[in-house]
Structure formats: structure tokens, C-alpha cells
Design a binder for these strands. Sequence first.
DNA 1: AAATAGTTTAACCAAGTGGTTAACAAATTT
DNA 2: AAATTTGTTAACCACTTGGTTAAACTATTT
Lengths: 178, 178
Amino acid sequence: MDGARMQEIANEAGINKAMLHYYYRSKQLLFEAVFKNAFSLLAPQLNTILNDDSSIEDKVRNFCSNYISFIIKHPYLPNFIIQELNRNPDFLLKMKNNPGFPTTEKFKKQVALEIDKGIIKPINGEQLFINIMALNVFPFVAKPLIQTLIGVEDEEFEKIVEERKTSAADFIINSIKI
Amino acid sequence: MDGARMQEIANEAGINKAMLHYYYRSKQLLFEAVFKNAFSLLAPQLNTILNDDSSIEDKVRNFCSNYISFIIKHPYLPNFIIQELNRNPDFLLKMKNNPGFPTTEKFKKQVALEIDKGIIKPINGEQLFINIMALNVFPFVAKPLIQTLIGVEDEEFEKIVEERKTSAADFIINSIKI
DNA sequence: AAATAGTTTAACCAAGTGGTTAACAAATTT
DNA sequence: AAATTTGTTAACCACTTGGTTAAACTATTT
């Protein structure tokens, strides 16, 4: 939002700047349309780990693989959402009531149940969810930092990220599986 | 950089806007001073996990505890660095030659050594480093997203983050300890 | 085909933007 | 104490910003 210029957006879209205002009225409304669109792509991904019916282990393995594939296709997405939410933390509240908005209730119950059954080790469901998100999202959000610290160019970084489809899943399962 | 206004910065600092330019010449140079200052706070933290002499397990436990304390004291820091590095990924390259700039060489060797000795399970050192960073940094970077998804206000979120000083460490150690 | 509604554009505008200047005030050096 | 450097400010400037307007053009309805 802050760095974007209406003129640049119009140029990129191959239209006149006035057209942007004709269809979206203001930069704020255009931004909200873009944000909602971006989040509507992300939400189903989160729901696969939160509201799917398979076991925690299966969900973790699936999510790590699918989510990383998903972000490779939309590399701008996590940064955009995280950056704009930090600029305006209340923005998501408006969307919280929409159907399909991800919640952690079911996931937390499932974690408690699998702990009870002795399938996984005791762990707080919220903490586990944060861990899963962190391990999958962070590499993309912090790409420039990580690349500089471990000293790899784009090609090598892509290999590392690709490897995480299984390595991040293994890391999580290793930690919680009995 | 994009959202900041020289006038606002001057107001916040209680000085005239012209003073900012007198001391820093341009917004770009002011920004670079701020960024370097921010990174100079972060670098020593990273070096505790990368270049300390204790065992991996001790380093992980120490880092999770210390780093989270550190970020609680500087909550703006991870977002600022990550956001600005995404805006200009090459910015860190200028600082890479500075003494004390964190590198992963020693850490990777240590991981290989402890695997050899049978202290920890086989894992790629780079992946482990990314995991450690992710589990510690991500909750702060994605705070508004996480808070909305798990539905907690600031106070409860602080508790969860505080709990991560040990829970994130346990999660990592559980995964790699033999 | 006339009228109406929707689309597209160049030109324009007021409000900010980073940055400069010239004058003045306070330290510091000589 | 005179001179010089350093610190400080209000006023100013060129340029960019999001946004508007009025006119032209195109498609649809009547």
C-alpha cells in the first residue's frame, strides 16, 4: 500500500490511471480488493491443516508439501499479507465472520484427542499450529535474510525450499510422534 | 521507508524537519543509519546460536530463551529488517564483509560433528538453522495473523510467546535429540 | 436511429513530498 | 572579544501524489 503508486499500477495493467479510480474509486478500496483476493487464496490452504479429517501426521505431511508448492506459485503472497497486517492489524477482523475463515478450534480438539490416544506426545495445540506455520511460511518471508546468512543464490535457495516439503514435515513429526 | 514521513520523524524526535536533513542529508541515508543500527542489535543474537562453543542442545535452549526476551524488548525489529530486506534484497550485501557479520559455517560443521558422534539425528545444518530461526522469529513477524487465527488478544498472545521460550526449544530438541 | 448507459482518456488540481535556503543563535577556537 | 564553526528554524521550492473532470468514444436499449 505505502510503496505502490496508482500510476505504476495503471501502467502495469496497461490502462489509464483514471480507469483505476473509475473502477475502484480510491487507492484504499483497490487495496482492500487486492488484500481480500490474496487472503481468499490463502484461507483454503490454512483450512487443509485446520479442518481436514485426516490424522495430524497426514495433515502435517500434506500441508508442508502442498503449502510450499502453493507459495512457490504465489511468492508475493505471504509477505504481502504479513506486511499489510502489521500496518493495519485490525484489517482481518472485518473478514473474520466470512464463511470459510480459518479457525483453530477443530485442530486444537484433534491435537488433544491424539495426545489422549497416545498417538502424539503432549503439546499445546496453539503452539503446534504456530510451529507448523512458522516452519512453512518463514523461509519465504525471510528469504533475503536467510539467503545472505547461509550464502546461497536463488537457484540453491529454491532447492533448499523444495527440500523442505519433506524435511519440515519430518522435523515436525519427529518432534511429536511417539 | 515507504510509509515513513520526514516530518513525522522530526516531530517524534522533537526537532525541526530541516535538522533531519542537516544531520542525515537525505531520507535514504537516514534509513540506512536506522537499518544498520537495527541489524547491529540483531547480529550478536544470531551469533549466539551460530558461533557459540556450547553443544547444539544448549545453544538451542539458550537461543530460544534469549532471543524471545530480546524481541520482546525490540518488537519492531524483526518486521523492520524483513520488510526492508524484501524491498531491497541487496542491502545486506554491503554489510556482509563487516566483522561480526553472522555466517553459518561453524554451525554447519558443529551439526555434522554432533551427528557423527551420535548426539543428534541426521539433519541438514542449513535446514536446522532455518527451523530454529523460523520457530523463534515467525510468531513476532506474523503476530496479527496468528492472533486473529487463534483468536487471542495481546495479553494472551504475550503469554503464548513467553511460553515459547521453553516450548520452541523443546520442540526442536525433541526432533533432533537421539 | 435516437437515446441512454457504460467506458476511456488527457488535462487538471489541491495537498503532500523530500529537500533547500538564508537568516539567526549558540558554542568553540583563535 | 573577534572569528569561525556548529546548531536551529521558518519559509520556501520543485515535484509527485491521489483524485477529479469534462469531453469523446463505444456499446446497449428503446
